[in-house]
């Protein structure tokens, strides 16, 4: 099931990906312009705007809700990470800027982590456990509940919870090492 879903998802991304980065270019540009001008734009607003432009593209045929969410989560991840990278590009020098995660999302009191490092770590995780990486993507970037994630991935809620738990632990360790 995961395989079939991946294919449809890959097709959707195929069509969207080129558009994604075109939008991101504009997005990052506006973000930087805002920063330089002294009034940084709300990341969320920009991200949503870019996301909205893309998601409305009539090129993609959404198979079902799960399909939509899966692709959205990936898109959102790409958008956020690319903005973070672009932002770091601008800021040279030792104190490379970090797009804190709570800039992007309304999150509780957790300490901000480096979005780019997280993205790298997630990619590394996907190399030997694609499902856990998906879980993190859907839950964190997509904001889905455990139940929704289970529905998208077609696994049990228990599986999602265990995946989520171990993935977070592994990521934390990985991020610690990178530091």
């Amino acid at each position: 099931m995961l395989l079939a879903w991946n294919e449809g998802d890959a097709r959707a991304l195929d069509q969207l990906m080129p558009l994604v980065h075109d939008e991101l270019h504009l997005l990052a540009h506006r973000y930087m312009a805002g920063e330089r001008a002294g009034h940084p734009l709300q990341t969320t607003a920009l991200v949503n705007e870019a996301y909205l432009r893309l998601i409305d593209s009539s090129r993609v045929r959404w198979q079902n809700r799960a399909h939509f969410f899966a692709v959205s989560a990936q898109l959102m991840r790409r958008i956020l990470v690319d903005v973070a990278r672009a932002r770091r590009q601008l800021k040279r020098g030792g104190d490379a800027a970090q797009v804190s995660l709570d800039e992007a999302l309304t999150v509780s009191s957790e300490p901000p982590a480096d979005l780019i490092a997280l993205d790298d770590a997630l990619t590394a995780l996907a190399a030997f456990d694609a499902r856990k990486a998906r879980v993190v993507e859907l839950r964190f970037f997509g904001g889905l509940t455990v139940e929704e994630t289970a529905e998208v991935l077609q696994v049990s809620v228990m599986t999602v919870m265990r995946d989520w738990g171990l993935a977070k632990v592994w990521l934390l360790r990985e991020l610690d090492r990178e530091r």
């Binding site: 992007a104 999150v107 009191s109 957790e110 970037f141 990521l171």
Partner: peptide
Amino acid sequence: DFLAAPPAEGVL
């Protein structure tokens, strides 16, 4: 607390 997913009412 890591990656505490936003609640259902969360912005994103």
